[in-house]
Design a protein around this nucleic acid. Structure first.
Length: 827
DNA sequence: CTAAATGATATTTTT
DNA sequence: TATCATTTAG
């Protein structure tokens, strides 16, 4: 959210029609819309490309509307066109449209697309954003009504956990037995439901730390108050509370927001629902112009508080709501839609949609189901398929591997590294969650918000200054005793002789530094200030002196951070941005296969999709089954549905007979979802390897088909257990084939780790060349050279065998690697 | 303060 | 089995 949004005056001159004659007033809108449309203009061109259902969804502007938008049916298009339509008809100014999404990415995309539609004439929409960013905006404006100062800090999960830990320990509770992490999750859960400390169920309170749940929650909220901080949950709950306590304020917003649009409605939690309800409330005869778009079949976030019920209940919540179904799919082939549709039909309690396509694609393949002996073969075979597709001229960017759990990614990464296949991992720990970034941010936070004790505590002793636990405790106690922030307490404490001389000196330095930086903040531009802070604090130096393998990367990250800051007005503006916008962008120039979880694939599409790991226990995940029962299974099934519907042309599902879980090998059963796919749209790919077989009959008492009934994936012959099977031999042969096919076709290998905001050895040596060059000749390295490997860190070369190096790694021990994957380290 | 040892824990993730 | 965080010992 750019800070410019905040500059738009609140109830200022941006409001058009006088409120005495509200546009939302019963019945006038449709009439005016029609009049406006019929009057002069023909069908505006932005409407012309829509299909009838989409057009209906765009033009049904008055009253509550639920758009059930199946996967690939043009949901975002409807949403953006609808906004353009409202603006075009002059029914509202941009500032009178409230439009909420779940992710910043979605919000950004919508802003861009609206900009295109309305020709950029409209200043960005100030109230288009995530629930959270809009929550912040509301809360900053009315901070005093929530007993906060408007410069409050937004704590992230890490801060929250540390805070909880402090509270738990302060209560004298064993934080081993009652982990802070768990408590933080409980708080999050309560806030997702919009519950304050007084409202939580008695059982919940009693369930934690021998009945101290409620007391801890109360203490937690009090602590946030004194820290002038909020957590993510508060960004939803505080506005709700504020609206309820101040009907006049609520009324202003109700009148302001003439149109409300909600994206991904199936993902809303109870708090978000309450928030929307409040804003959408209208006096008796009037009806809110609320349009919610979503797909109950794609609800996959139940485990973090999303209530599918919200979407299922929509027409009861908003009587007379118009429900529009978008079932015309523009993404996938008939086979893919057929497979996905049949699978999802096994769920109960759906609103019911059937996707269809009118485009008949010449490349019309069934969904392929493949079996592999174990996850290694699975990775190898998928790697092969990818290479074959690539040889046919298909771009890696159009391919994705979607896994159920992130541990599955590793095997693919390893395989692709050896193949020299570019890949990109999406998801995982984010740039702003990295230690060095969080440390740097903590410095900045203390400078801009001296009451931010959590940040202060994080970095008083970073780099190590001899301010150990004892000293910090002392500052903490002094601060708590007098009800002042720790930095202020430290300032006083150094004037006394309560501290030992050494810590006292260090602390004096720290306090002086912060004082200096605070003065500097008034004048220096953000990025300069940031650089100064990192330099003077000794933080940069600390990493420069660090000999660890990842220290250079960390320095790079810090540099990147400072660069990012230079794009902001001030350090403050930057901090605000970071608290909410945690995503990092990718490098679309690089052609690479995407590897991600099914969850993070929602909303994306690829020409070819690989879905590995369709085994009982993994997918559906055992834990979902154990903890969620039938609804857990249904959510897993929706996840499978999401996976299938990501594919435009080709979809390959894989399952293995053996998978290593927590270190030990387990034989696995094919996922029940495989049996829920329709024969007509599925092709079972070469099962002649025997790898798909396993001794099912034995372990299930001879019951044919195992516990889920007869399966077409049952094998008659049990696995032979030797490496003499045709499949094994084939696998061996393929190994070399694949490598040979590779030579000369590869154009360097690159790995991108999007969330980390770092990239691998881009443009490194061509594998083919290496192999050719290395035959008989010497490698570019010599024994004893100090080298760096992206996976194993630093090490010294022990043996050179052509392009293969044996390296003694400092951390990882001795490994044999290709020299294309190491780089020389300057000594 | 650092390094080694121990032990818990091992879906999915955004804000 | 591997990784992580935290504790413990030096």
């Amino acid at each position: 959210m750019s800070s410019a949004d905040d500059d738009i005056p609140f109830f200022g001159d941006d409001d058009p029609a006088p409120r005495a004659q509200p546009a939302a007033g019963g019945g006038s809108i449709a009439a005016r819309a029609m009049a406006a449309r019929n009057a002069s203009r023909p069908t505006p061109n932005y409407l012309s490309g829509l299909n009838p259902e989409q057009a209906d969804a765009v033009e049904s502007i008055e009253g509550p509307v639920l758009v059930l938008a199946g996967a690939g049916t043009g949901k975002t298009r409807v949403l953006t066109t609808r906004i353009a339509h409202i603006l075009n008809l002059g029914l509202a100014y941009p500032s009178q449209i409230l439009s909420v999404t779940f992710t910043n990415k979605a919000a950004r995309e919508m802003k861009e697309r609206i900009g295109v539609l309305v020709g950029g004439a409209v200043e960005g929409m100030p109230w288009l954003g995530t629930f959270h960013s809009i929550g912040v905006k509301l809360l900053r404006r009315h901070a005093e009504l929530a007993n906060l100062r408007s410069d409050f800090t937004i704590l992230d999960t890490d801060d929250v956990v540390r805070l909880c830990k402090q509270l738990i320990q302060a209560e004298g509770i064993d934080d081993k037995r009652w982990p802070a992490r768990q408590f933080a999750q409980m708080i999050d859960g309560w806030k997702n439901k919009g519950l304050g400390p007084a409202e939580i169920p008695e059982g919940d309170s009693r369930g934690f730390a021998n009945g101290k749940g409620r007391a801890l929650y109360t203490a937690y909220q009090a602590r946030l108050q004194t820290l002038n901080a909020v957590d993510f949950g508060d960004l939803l709950c505080q506005p709700i509370r504020l609206f309820r306590a101040n009907p006049d304020v609520l009324k202003e917003y109700q009148q302001k927001f003439r149109f409300i649009l909600v994206d991904e409605y199936q993902d809303t939690n109870t708090a978000q629902y309450m928030w929307l309800r409040l804003l959408a409330q209208r006096p008796a005869p009037e009806r809110p112009n609320i349009c919610c778009v979503g797909d109950d079949d794609q609800s996959i976030y139940g485990w973090r508080g999303a209530e599918v019920e919200n979407i299922l209940r929509f027409d009861k919540d908003f009587p007379g709501a118009k429900v529009i179904r978008l079932e015309r799919n523009y993404r996938s082939t008939e086979h893919i839609l057929g497979a996905a549709g049949h699978l999802i039909s096994h769920n109960e309690g759906r609103l019911g949609k059937t996707l269809f396509t009118e485009q008949s694609n010449p490349e019309h393949e069934r969904v392929h189901v493949h079996a592999a002996w174990d996850s290694e073969e699975e990775a190898r075979a998928i790697g092969e398929e990818i290479e074959q597709a690539q040889n046919k001229g298909r771009a890696l960017n159009n391919m994705a591997i979607l896994v159920r759990a992130s541990f599955q990614m590793r095997e693919f990464e390893e395989r692709f590294v050896t193949l020299g296949l570019n890949y990109r991992v999406i998801g995982g720990p984010r740039f702003y969650e990295r230690q060095e970034i969080r440390d740097a941010m903590a410095f900045f936070r203390v400078v801009s918000q001296p009451a931010d004790d959590l940040a202060f505590e994080r970095i008083v002793n970073v780099p190590k200054r001899g301010l150990g636990e004892a000293a910090v405790r002392q500052i903490h106690d002094a601060a708590r005793a007098r009800g002042i922030p720790m930095l202020a307490a430290a300032r006083d404490l150094i004037l006394t002789d309560e501290l030992k001389p050494r810590p006292r000196k260090s602390l004096t330095d720290v306090v002086e530094m912060f004082t200096r930086w605070q003065t500097l903040m008034e004048t220096a531009p953000g990025h300069e200030l940031a650089e100064t802070i990192l330099e003077e604090s000794g933080y940069t130096e600390m990493w420069q002196n660090d000999r660890a393998a990842d220290a250079p990367t960390r320095l790079e990250n810090l540099k990147e951070l400072v660069e990012t800051i230079s794009g902001f007005e001030s350090l403050r503006a930057f901090l605000e941005h970071v608290a909410l916008v945690m995503d990092t962008d990718n490098n679309p120039d690089l052609d690479a296969v995407s590897i991600m979880t099914l969850h993070s694939a929602k909303g994306l599409e690829f020409e070819t999709v690989f879905l590995p790991g369709w085994e009982e226990g993994l997918f559906p995940h055992q834990r979902a089954l154990d903890e969620g029962g039938r609804s857990g299974l249904e959510e897993e099934r929706r996840l499978a549905y999401v996976g299938l519907t990501r594919a435009k042309l080709f979809c390959h599902i894989w399952f293995v007979s053996n998978r290593r879980i927590h270190g030990l090998w387990q034989s696995t059963l094919p996922s029940r979802f495989l049996d829920e796919l329709p024969e007509a749209h599925v092709e079972v790919a070469e099962m002649d390897t025997g790898y798909g077989g396993y001794g099912r009959g034995g372990s299930f008492g001879g019951q044919s088909g195992g516990p889920y009934g007869a399966s077409r994936f049952d094998r008659a012959e049990p696995f032979s257990g030797t490496y003499n099977t045709p499949g094994w031999k084939r696998a061996q042969a393929n190994k070399t084939d694949a490598a040979r096919d590779n030579w000369g076709t590869r154009s360097g290998h690159a790995v991108e780790r999007i969330a980390y905001g770092e990239s691998g050895p881009r443009g490194s040596t061509i594998e083919g060349e290496l192999v050719a060059k290395s035959t008989g000749t010497t490698s570019a390295y010599s024994v004893g050279d100090r080298v760096f490997h992206m996976k194993f860190g630093n090490g010294n070369i022990a043996v050179i065998d052509g392009n293969k190096l044996t390296i003694d790694f400092d951390k990882a021990g001795q490994k044999r690697v290709l020299d294309g994957f190491v780089s020389r380290v300057g000594t």
